[in-house]
Design a protein around this nucleic acid. Structure first.
Lengths: 227, 227
DNA sequence: AATTTCACCGATAGTACTATCGGTGAAATT
DNA sequence: AATTTCACCGATAGTACTATCGGTGAAATT
């Protein structure tokens, strides 16, 4: 073993990162209710009282955890959609639009779980943060649809894009969680389902107002996603 | 005011119901973390210690709340799907398949919120219950699809039905929550989106293996949902 | 080399909640 | 009418956690 001559500030930073890592692990395993200064400090190898050297209180650690996690998750999501948009006619790519977010979720499942939990927990101090994050996903997704040519001229159309984005996002999360729970071993299969769901929605958008108004115009057999 | 000469057991039962009602309200407003014997008892108008006359501990009240809520929610869901199945060619009915669950959720939003929250909270004592409930919805929905003629012969097909059911359920919950948050004022519009999503999935099922394998057979323009 | 800084420590006061216990009075039973 | 039952009460011991405080020793600064 080589000796490790850490400076004071390096040591402090290392401890801080240990606290964050420990906090994420506990948050995932035991939820917000299990996140106490006693547990986090012990898991990071310091005394409970030393927790306050690094964070004002547990709220502050929570906020840091949420931002860290949210930032990483949002980043990989946006990357995935960007990659898919750049090769829009490619069917394999269309599946990737969904497979890549699925994989991103499964790489750090605790980040999604924390968001989902916080979103429906009125006592959670992360709730507003989770709601904003969900809104950002929804709007990004809706904007992507609009960029594909499904422009929304009126209130009704804009709301429809948002609902589709919302629904597809929820389905994506659900299938990722199903994969993590062992029900859907193959993420490609899950991506196929999401492609099929989104095709149905896009068909609705193409069909005009979307309300049932007699026979709709014939549809292309295997439509590309743009224009 | 008429006098209310309640027998002892009637009074006890009334108190018990007050506790359950108070528990549901607090669970919805403050989450599981806010559900304490002090708050529930006070909201029901009795002393904290008297809580234990009715329930062994908070776990027991929670279990009762979960069962009460889950039972009611499951019941209205099943009714909705049954009604829709009985008039399968009716387009208006197909929308009802989704509108009725949406309405059921919005009538008692706290029941869904409690389930969603518990499902992703490892510290929640309702977690197993919530997961079982979710599994039941998923399997009921998948069975309904199978009953519509989309029989699953192999492992792959069965899993596909389950994923579709899972995805559509998640989208339904997401749109219901969006309605409650004021984003989607018209539940009919939301139901239209769900119809479109499910049509996309059903098209996948009709198209054979579902993997992209060259041009698919032409599709009926506005397919009924059965056979 | 002397002094200062500061990450960390153990001890502890304060807060919130659980769950038990003996007491009480009105309803129920005898 | 006498006795028993029991839903409810206030008091309180016990548990878990937060957040502060003074002390310590090694790193950093002078």
């Amino acid at each position: 073993m080589t000796s490790t001559p850490l400076s004071r500030s390096e040591a402090k930073d290392l401890t801080r990162r240990k606290l964050i890592r420990a906090g994420l692990a506990i948050l995932d395993e035991e939820g917000e209710a299990g996140l106490t200064t006693v547990k986090v400090a012990k898991a990071a190898g310091i005394a409970q009282s030393s927790f306050y050297v690094h964070f004002k209180d547990m709220q502050e650690l929570l906020r840091v955890l949420a931002e860290e996690g949210g930032r990483r998750l949002r980043h990989s999501m946006r990357e995935a959609r960007r990659a898919a948009r750049e090769a829009p006619g490619d069917l394999e790519r269309h599946r990737d639009t969904f497979r890549i977010p699925l994989e991103a979720i499964c790489r750090h499942p605790e980040l999604l779980r924390i968001q989902l939990r916080a979103r429906h927990d009125p006592s959670s101090s992360l709730r507003d943060f989770a709601k904003e994050t969900a809104a950002a996903y929804r709007e990004h997704h809706a904007a992507d649809l609009a960029a594909l040519g499904y422009t929304a001229d009126d209130e009704h159309g804009r709301r429809r894009l948002e609902m589709i984005a919302d629904g597809i996002n929820a389905a994506t999360n659900a299938l990722a969680i199903g994969h993590l729970e062992g029900r859907y071993p193959d993420l490609d299969e899950a991506a196929d389902i999401l492609v099929a769901l989104s095709r149905g929605a896009l068909r609705l958008l193409r069909s005009g107002s979307g309300r049932d108004e007699g026979p709709r115009p014939p549809e292309p057999d295997d439509p590309a996603l743009h224009d």
